[in-house]
Design a protein around this nucleic acid. Structure first.
Length: 226
DNA sequence: GCGACAG
DNA sequence: ATCTTGTCGC
C-alpha cells in the first residue's frame, strides 16, 4: 500500500507542530466506515540504547478475529520521542511496513491516541489520513483530558474531555480491569470506534489487533539479536 | 516556575 | 517503550 498524501519527514519540532495543525483540519469525525472485512493493528517495538526499532502490521478477519496477514520491518530511529509528536517517530517505519502489506484493511487500530491530542492529531489521525482509511486510536494510558472512572462492567465508558470538548472515551473492555483510552483517528465516529474496540476485545483488556501485532514485533525484535 | 507528558 | 522475579489467581 502507498499513502494518498505526502509531506516531508525531516522536520524540526516546530515544523512538525505546524504540519499537525494543518493536517488536523482534514480529519473526519463522521463514519466513513463501510463493510469491514479486514482490520489492521499497527505497532512499533524499541530497544533501549539501540537506534533500531521494529514496526509491524497484523490484519485480522473482522468476523473471526483470526490473523490473515502480518508484516514486520526494522528501521533506525529518525525522530526522538516527544509527547505530542509521537507519529513522527513511528510513522516512517510503519510506512515501510504498509509498503509490504498486500491486504487492504477497511479499518486500522493504533496503539496511542487519535484526536485526544493537544492539536487533535495523534498517531491514529495521522495514519488514517495518510492512507485515507478509517482509523481508531486505542491507548493504554492518557495523553491529556479529564474523565470520571467508568462503571466496572464490560462496555462501560465515560467521556474524555479537553477544554470542554469530548476528545475520546475511557472504555472498560473487561469487567474490573483498567479501562483503555479510545479516540477517533479519522473517518469514524466515537460511538462506532467504541463498538469496534469492544468487539475486538472479547477476552482481554486490549483489542486483539493490538495484542497480535504487539507479540509479533516483540518476537521479531528478540530474533534480531536482543 | 512546577507538574504532566501516547510509546 | 524498556529495565525486571516472583507471585497470586483462573
Amino acid at each position: 500500500m502507498q499513502p494518498v498524501i505526502h509531506h516531508p519527514w525531516t522536520l524540526t519540532e516546530q515544523e512538525a507542530i505546524s504540519l499537525q495543525k494543518q493536517l488536523a483540519l482534514q480529519v473526519k469525525t463522521e463514519d466513513q466506515v463501510k463493510e469491514v472485512q479486514h482490520i489492521a493493528g499497527v505497532d512499533v517495538a524499541y530497544h533501549v540504547a539501540e537506534d533500531v526499532l521494529v514496526a509491524g502490521i497484523v490484519v485480522l478477519d473482522a468476523a473471526s478475529l483470526q490473523v490473515v496477514e502480518s508484516v514486520v520491518v526494522s528501521d533506525s530511529v529518525a525522530f526522538p520521542y516527544i509527547p505530542g509528536l509521537f507519529s513522527f517517530r513511528e510513522l516512517p517505519p510503519l510506512m515501510k511496513a504498509f509498503e509490504k502489506l498486500q491486504t487492504v484493511p477497511q479499518l486500522i487500530v493504533c496503539d496511542g491516541q487519535g484526536i485526544a491530542h493537544p492539536r487533535r492529531f495523534g498517531l491514529a489521525s495521522h495514519v488514517g489520513l495518510l492512507y485515507d482509511i478509517p482509523a481508531i486510536g486505542c491507548g493504554k494510558t492518557r495523553l491529556l483530558g479529564e474523565y470520571a472512572q467508568p462503571d466496572s462492567h464490560r462496555g462501560a465508558c465515560s467521556p474524555l474531555l479537553d477544554e470542554g470538548e469530548i476528545v475520546g472515551a475511557v472504555l472498560r473492555t473487561q469487567a474490573d480491569t483498567k479501562p483503555v483510552f479510545v479516540s477517533v483517528g479519522h473517518g469514524i465516529s466515537l460511538p462506532t470506534a467504541c463498538e469496534w474496540i469492544t468487539r475486538l476485545a472479547p477476552k482481554y483488556r486490549l483489542p486483539e489487533t493490538t495484542r497480535q501485532v504487539d507479540q509479533l514485533v516483540n518476537k521479531a525484535l528478540a530474533g534480531l539479536g536482543n
